[in-house]
Computed example of a mutant assay.
Amino acid sequence: MNIKSLLLGSAAALAVVSGAQAADAVVAAEPEPMEYVRVCDAYGTGFFYIPGTETCLKVGGLLRFEKNYSKADNSKAYYEWHTRARIQIEAKNDSEWGTVYSWIRLQGDSYNNTVEDGAGGNRTRWWYYFGIGGLEFGRFDAPGTRFQGYGGRTDWGGYYGNDHNQQYISYTFNYDNFSAFVALENDLYNGVNYNYVNELDNVVLDQEKSDGGRTYMPNVSAGVKGSFGDYEVGAFVGYDESIESFNVRKWVRGDIGMFGFTLMGLYSDDARNEYFNYDGFSGILGLSAKVTDTVTVAKDIQWWDDDSWRVIGNVNWKVASGFSVLLEASYGDGKQVGDKVKTGMLRFQRSF
């Protein structure tokens, strides 16, 4: 056997061995395509598409710590600690009938380490609404209160209604710079009407006027507003069917450069009116100024025609993106407020 034959035989043997090893080799499967989360910019910032759908989702919330102070004339000062945690989820998608949307908020509050839920200490509450186009169903602050942009310029914002935390059906119509709404609101609470007198913070059910939930009629509210450059003008009317009472609100709001103002007038013909627990007229004047890119100051002044009044002022500092500090104080006097009442609040908040 010569050298050439030996080399050819060795090469053939190696080929056989290599082929046997190749037959036993594990071949990796091709990776399946991954669907990454896509940003949805159709409804503003923070939305993303739920993978595999055309529904846009937004998750947000806040954490809050507050130290509160309250002092009335001829009484001891009262100090309170308050913490809050909130999470909310919003979902939207398009349809031939308009935007289909839903909103859910879960919020927990703790006052002075009290652990019993619903007893003035810890409170866990849900709010929610959903709709399509301009039609909405839910349980939250009343449509009229949200439609008017709430109250003044401070966190407290003035006393402008009691129509919060309610079940409702509403329809909102938008055309160019104008919008209008109409709503039906459930006026029953634990099976009886919201027929009470608000005596400072003491709720007293009016048994004489309450129908015990036997009637089917809800409360009715409606409003209209329009934007004209830097200004907004609007009007609202709410009818409390249980006591056949009306509440009327009108407002003018403006934001011109670094300055802003809100002027609101309110009238109700019965102190038990659900929309505004007062028999008479009240006015709110709110002012605000953006002093720097991170600091805003605001003031609200409210007066009632029984000569009650209250002044609220605050300073809000946006320390960083998602973190702020708010210092707010108030002073007031009269039947609607209390006897020379002073309050103060320092808040630290993380929002996302």
Results as ranks from 00 to 15, higher is better:
Met1Leu: 14
Ile3Ala: 15
Gly9Asp: 07
Val16Lys: 10
Ala20Ile: 15
Ala22Ile: 13
Ala22Met: 15
Ala25Arg: 10
Ala25Ile: 03
Val26Thr: 15
Glu30Arg: 12
Glu30Ser: 13
Val39His: 12
Tyr43Val: 12
Gly44Ser: 03
Gly44Phe: 03
Thr45Pro: 05
Phe47Ala: 06
Phe48Trp: 05
Phe48Arg: 06
Phe48Gln: 09
Ile50Leu: 06
Glu54Asn: 12
Glu54Met: 10
Thr55Asn: 11
Lys58Leu: 08
Lys58Asn: 09
Lys58Pro: 06
Leu62Ile: 07
Lys67Gln: 14
Asn74Ala: 14
Asn74Lys: 12
Asn74His: 15
Ala77Ile: 04
Tyr78Leu: 14
Tyr79Lys: 12
Glu80Ile: 08
Trp81Phe: 15
Thr83Gly: 09
Arg84Asp: 07
Ala85Ile: 08
Gln88His: 14
Gln88Gly: 09
Asn93Cys: 01
Asn93Ser: 13
Gly98Arg: 03
Ser102Ala: 15
Ser110Val: 06
Asp117Trp: 02
Gly118Ile: 03
Ala119Gln: 08
Gly121Pro: 00
Asn122Cys: 06
Asn122Tyr: 07
Arg123Pro: 06
Arg125Pro: 05
Trp127Arg: 10
Tyr129Lys: 09
Gly133Ile: 14
Leu135Gly: 02
Phe137Cys: 08
Arg139Thr: 00
Gly144Ala: 13
Arg146Ala: 00
Gly151Asp: 08
Gly152Arg: 01
Thr154Trp: 04
Asp155Tyr: 07
Gly157Glu: 05
Gly158Met: 02
Tyr160Phe: 13
Gly161Asp: 00
His164Lys: 11
Asn174Gly: 14
Tyr175Ala: 14
Tyr175Pro: 08
Phe178Leu: 15
Ala180Ser: 15
Phe181Ala: 04
Ala183Ser: 11
Asp187Ser: 04
Asp187Ile: 01
Asn190Asp: 11
Gly191Asp: 05
Leu200Arg: 15
Leu200Asp: 13
Val203Ala: 12
Leu205Phe: 08
Asp211Ile: 06
Asp211Pro: 02
Asp211Arg: 05
Arg214Gln: 12
Met217Cys: 09
Pro218Thr: 07
Pro218Trp: 00
Ala222His: 01
Val224Gly: 14
Phe228Tyr: 15
Gly229Pro: 05
Asp230Ile: 03
Tyr231His: 14
Tyr239Ala: 04
Glu241Ile: 09
Ile243Leu: 03
Glu244Pro: 07
Ser245Asp: 04
Phe246Pro: 01
Arg253Leu: 00
Gly254Ser: 11
Phe261Ala: 10
Tyr267Phe: 15
Asp269Ala: 01
Glu274Asn: 07
Gly280Lys: 01
Gly283Asp: 07
Ile284His: 04
Gly286His: 01
Ala289Leu: 12
Lys290Ile: 02
Asp293Gln: 10
Asp293Ile: 03
Val295Arg: 10
Thr296Gly: 09
Val297Ala: 13
Asp300Pro: 03
Ile301Met: 13
Asp307Lys: 07
Val311Arg: 03
Ile312Ser: 01
Gly313Ala: 08
Gly313Gln: 08
Val315Asn: 07
Ala320Gly: 09
Ser321His: 08
Phe323Tyr: 08
Ser324Phe: 00
Leu326Met: 09
Glu328Ala: 05
Ser330Lys: 01
Asp333Gln: 05
Gln336Pro: 02
Gln336Trp: 01
Gln336Glu: 11
Val337Lys: 04
Gly338Pro: 13
Gly338Ser: 09
Met345Gly: 00
Arg347His: 06
Ser351Gln: 14
